[in-house]
Design a protein around this nucleic acid. Sequence first.
DNA 1: CACCAGGAAGGTC
DNA 2: GACCTTCCTGGTG
Length: 423
Amino acid sequence: MHTEFSAIDRYLEASHFTTDPKMDFHLDQKVPQNKHFQGTEDLIFSDIVSEGQFSCSVNSFMDNMGEFPPQPQTVVPVMGNPQEFQNPVSPKRFIDMDSHHESSDQELSLYDPNFVVKTEKVYVPCSMSSTSNIPNLPNFCSINSEPYVQPVKSEPYAESISCGDQFGNSDIGSAVVMALKNEINQICRILVISLDPRSWSESDVMKWMEWHGNQFQASYGVSEAFRMTGEQLCRLSSDNFKRRSPEAGANLYAQLDVWKNACSLPNPQIKPVMPEYFFPAPAPSDSYIPVASSPSPSTTSDESSQCSSPVSLPSDEETVTTPTYHNNVSSGKQTIHLWEFLKELLLQPDNYSGCIKWVSRSDGIFKIEDSSRVARLWGKRKNRPAMNYDKLSRSIRQYYKKGIIKKTEHSKRLVYQFCQPYL
DNA sequence: CACCAGGAAGGTC
DNA sequence: GACCTTCCTGGTG
């Protein structure tokens, strides 16, 4: 510990931290699931602290410091009294809400466990309560693009990139796919596990199980029934999951499936223009392979005239179907999932707020205002002229057990909610 | 009547 | 096999 302290001292000195024993605090409270903060006005330390959520000990923070590279960088204890962390020399080296406010109007999501703080063009996922009880997880994060204490296995640390620099405006759908993969990448980095569940060790599997237990506030926790390697886990059938955990097996199986699919997700085409507010999460620089977009055929639409069309957005309801999806890169076939399609519509309020809109963007709650029109649009996209809301809603209900979409806590007609990590 | 929940079978990729 | 699509029964307000 003494040898580590010398590194810590250098580190703290470089970062203008203090070793003031007042830093030795411990918070262990809970914050409501899916708590979100919109903009700087909501993101106040006192709120965060009072809301809890964070379980952080500066002792553990300092324990990890010795493993950091010796060069100066900014380290942010996950939470505490901001005054005690006040940096007299360079206050902006801490979580800088003003900087965030200036650089982005996108929301900060503080939900468990992917609290993402953006400073300038750097996103910082912080460890949260759900990870604090997982061994070897760092209880701090750094505001730069350096690796965590334990770099993610088999996965290069994704550089933080301004999403607004990457996507063409016709690639909203691929952006959604990328955002999903980003979320999973972030969780993997936080859990310090590989993106590919097949390469997980037994302890990796346990971390993932534990994360899901926290994420869904489920009572099942980490079941001994799933004590196995990732490869073995991936070989389990849905029935086997259910047998091992009748209450959570189906959900875990579906979530694992999401993980497995994320590994094989293709790289959306990278083009400039896409506004940042489409992306609540950082874009990984790893493993994405650019592919060419494939425009859908342009046909007339009885509803196209209803749509005002910003230059960068589809001019009618047929062209909303143009983002690049290649679930199979080699074959180049296009597919789109219903939830992705719904997000596309939601991301274009100028065009589609009349038929679908956010009730609470931060919570992922949306309302279908015109069910028949949404169904018609979906039918056009999938070339299913007989599509109606009855069928579309059946497809939505298929998402319940997959943990992609759910009904809101107080079920309301035509109101649904995206689950994590699909927000 | 519109919406909701979920089983079952079938189609497409 | 995943992801719907289609059809269905039954329920709610």
